[in-house]
Design a protein around this nucleic acid. Structure first.
Length: 570
RNA sequence: CGGGGCGUAGCGCAGUCCGGCUAGCGCGUCGGCUUUGGGAGCCGAAGGUCGCCGGUUCGAAUCCGGCCGCCCCGACCA
């Protein structure tokens, strides 16, 4: 390939809207261009990288026994109504309709479509296990796109779905995908941490996310510095505090006036106390009833944990009207003492270890002091409800501490069970002739997001430094004097030899000054660079330089290909 | 959706507070000459609905109102 006939409009300066390194460099290097917020076009270089990533995924999916399919983007409304996700999927999918006003959504994920697909043809246990995958554009109406390719409305995703007769089969299929993921990220030289996580809108269990530790990421994960336990903020477990305290002493609750003190900080200021001596009472509506969740004043409630503990589909915070109706007080003065019987009280473990606490009095402008946990009120249970914080003791080993990190989620595997197969009649006969819903697993990889993650992980002040497996071209041959016939002949011969050896090479024969070619090569991030200049014409020697570590070798023309391969491989 | 910032040539910006010649600068682009191993030099040129609509005014990039777009932070925490 000749650069003079290629298209990679590089920018000396990044557009002002780009802040994180991957966004800036992908724009500057001519890989992508924005069309609208969270919507990008891929230019030839960007597409080449995307295809490289896709192909690594394809090879490993194939090696793991998965078969590629290609599913529709437009999904009829009725299909999603059958699984109940038309109304419940978050974020709300983009919707559209045809001229007959038939309503469709633009697929944010494909559980419904794939399950419907196999349901029509699978009838016997003899036809499973089966794992199908696709690489497809997904649409999500993100509340806020951000970070270039990190979070966008339209993106490329690999999604795989496994179908098995039973749990044991699912375990095998799941493990095969998990192992394939490990190999994919190894080959892409993308360092990942596998963390425990929640399945979110998909529903499921044994959820693991593949995370790239990076400051530009938008997820927070915790890693124990001692035992290596790692989890997403959604489910990271801090250790429960040591044993319950005795609350026999003390005089019991005393009423204190706290006019207009609706927040923890305001209460603390008025009562001259600290947030860790307060109990926050958060009122939720859960599947019809009300639940009061108690959490220490300096902590945040983790709604995923509350939802998981209650086992409910619906969980929303009570409205101000409902709070007034249930507690008799306006927002900001709720407390566990004297709540109606039917309100279920669940408390975070830390509450059990508190001495006398300050709580809302369930009347306007008042709080209760000296409230004794377990005496003045009795929670139904003490459970882990709080969001982990940097430095919390580890819930797994209780010796180490949890370290918080920012991370980019690039892959996700989990077990779905029979939620979709049961709803969409993906049912087969087992050996006994009994009808069984297929047991499913679901496995996603953010392909376009990986492109951004690769740049985040592999760049320096001069530009990108692609791993060889993902690079748009492995070698750039810089022809510094394109007008001179002799150097040009050497360069063209070298490119042909590199290509014959299975390497992708681009010949920079543009009528640009040498400096421009060097700068562009560094910016675009070819793993290897060969220079054909005046020195080459005189000595016949070609200079090879590796982008990653600037290692340089000067070799004769006939050694160049061998040396290039060696430098790329080591 | 709430908060903040921004919108002037392809990119980066100045000018806007305090209205007033023909709207500037750097980079890039085009032509010419010179140059040729880390984003060249000189000469010349092109390129702008100042985000959009409306208002105030003799006069608006600048003041007022509305709208749109882009970026960042936040996400019901009592």
């Amino acid at each position: 390939m000749k650069a003079s006939q290629y298209y990679f409009p590089t920018l000396r300066q990044a557009p002002a809207e780009a802040e994180i390194p991957s966004h800036r460099l992908l724009l500057r290097g001519g890989f992508i261009r924005p069309l609208s917020a969270g919507i990008f076009s891929f230019l030839p270089l960007g597409l080449r990288v995307l295809r490289k990533v896709e192909n690594v995924i394809r090879e490993e999916m194939g090696a793991a026994g998965a078969l590629e399919v290609f599913l529709p983007v437009l999904h009829p409304r009725e299909l999603w109504e059958r699984t109940g996700r038309w109304d419940s999927f978050q974020p709300t999918p983009l919707r559209t309709q045809d001229r007959n006003e038939r309503v469709f959504l633009l697929g944010p994920t494909h559980e419904e479509v794939i399950t419907d697909l196999v349901a029509r043809d699978l009838t016997s246990y003899k036809q499973v296990p089966l794992t199908l995958y696709q690489i497809q554009t997904k649409f999500r109406d993100e509340i806020r796109p951000r970070g270039g390719l990190i979070r966008v409305k339209e993106f490329t995703m690999k999604d795989a779905y496994s179908f098995d007769l039973n749990r044991e089969g699912l375990d095998h299929s799941y493990q095969a995908m998990y192992d394939a993921y490990v190999r994919i990220f190894q080959r892409l030289e993308l360092p990942v941490v596998v963390v425990e996580a929640e399945a979110g809108s998909m529903g499921g269990h044994d959820t693991r996310e593949f995370m790239v530790l990076n400051e530009s990421g938008e997820d927070t994960i915790f890693i124990c510095d001692t035992c290596g336990y790692s989890a997403n903020v959604e489910c990271a477990q801090p250790a429960a505090p040591p044993g319950a305290r005795s609350h026999d002493s003390g005089d019991g609750p005393q009423l204190a006036q706290t006019p207009n003190a609706r927040t923890i900080d305001q209460v603390c200021a008025q009562l001259k106390t600290t947030p860790d001596r307060l109990i926050k009472t958060l009122l939720y509506r859960a599947d019809g009833g009300f639940v009061a969740a108690l959490i220490r004043g300096d902590r945040d409630l983790n709604e995923f944990k509350l939802r998981g503990y209650l086992g409910t589909e619906q969980l929303t915070m009570a409205t101000p009207e409902e709070i007034l109706q249930v507690t008799g007080a306006p927002v900001g003065f709720s407390g566990p003492v004297g709540l109606p019987e039917e309100v279920r009280i669940v408390a975070d473990c830390e509450i059990q270890a508190m001495a006398e606490a300050v709580v809302g009095a369930n009347r306007a402008d008042a709080h209760l002091l000296g409230v004794r946990v377990g005496v003045d009120f009795q929670p139904a249970e003490y459970v882990d409800l709080r969001e982990a914080r940097h430095g919390d003791p580890c819930g797994k080993c209780s010796r180490g501490t949890l370290q918080a990190h920012r991370a980019i989620e690039v892959g996700h595997v989990f077990k779905l069970g029979t939620k979709y197969s049961a709803a969409l009649d993906a049912i087969v006969d087992d050996e006994q002739g009994q009808q069984q819903p297929l047991v499913m697993g679901c496995y996603g990889i953010g392909v376009s997001r990986i492109v951004a993650a690769l740049v985040e992980a592999h760049h320096d002040d001069n530009g990108i430094s692609w791993p060889a497996t993902a690079a748009p071209f492995q070698v750039a041959v810089l022809l510094l004097d394109p007008d001179q016939p002799e150097p040009r002949a050497i360069a063209e011969k070298l490119v042909a030899a590199l290509e014959a050896a299975g390497l992708e090479a681009i010949l920079d024969d543009r009528a640009e000054r040498p400096g421009v070619k060097f700068k562009d090569a560094d910016l675009i991030g070819y793993p290897l660079r060969a220079v054909i200049g005046r020195r080459t014409a005189e000595s016949g020697e070609i200079e090879l330089r590796r982008r990653r570590d600037a290692q340089e070798q000067v070799v004769s023309a006939d050694q160049a290909v061998g040396t290039a391969r060696a430098m790329l491989a080591s």
